[in-house]
């Protein structure tokens, strides 16, 4: 039974069943912790409102973080890489042909030299 869930890689093994069981146990633990929480907590009152240094809470739609604002730090940290790589993606069909012919030439040289 357990073997049917086991993937042998030749150098090790992986069993999906154990993962599913571990995941289920983690969910159950989470549910137990959640269910032991404060039952009198009233979600509709002021106690649940965020404190924004005394400012009024903006509408929910206005605080949704859009995709353009995500991973700003990542793209900024790699800005040098992106400055290098983006210019290759010109959208110009002539450049597409050039890349194709360039690879053809490089592969030809490699295969001829190292055949």
């Amino acid at each position: 039974m357990i073997e049917s869930f086991t993937l042998t890689t030749g150098f090790g093994a992986w069993n999906a069943l154990f993962w599913v069981i571990a995941f289920a146990i983690a969910l159950i633990i989470g549910w137990i912790i959640w269910s032991r929480g404060e039952k009198t907590y009233d979600t509709g009152k002021e106690s649940t409102a965020p404190f924004l240094s005394g400012n009024a809470e903006p509408d929910k739609e206005e605080v949704h973080i859009r995709a353009g604002n995500l991973y700003w730090g990542y793209t900024d940290a790699l800005s040098g890489y992106y400055r290098f790589i983006r210019p290759f993606h010109t959208g110009n069909l002539s450049d597409y042909f050039l890349a194709y012919l360039l690879v053809t030439a490089i592969v030809l040289v490699l295969v001829v030299i190292l055949k």
């Binding site: 290759f88 993606h89 959208g91 597409y96 890349a99 360039l102 690879v103 053809t104 592969v107």
Partner: peptide
């Protein structure tokens, strides 16, 4: 090789 690698979208022939 190059025709099929381009058709499968291998870099640097992936622009399409």
């Amino acid at each position: 090789f190059s025709a099929l690698a381009m058709k499968c979208g291998a870099v640097p022939m992936h622009f399409w």
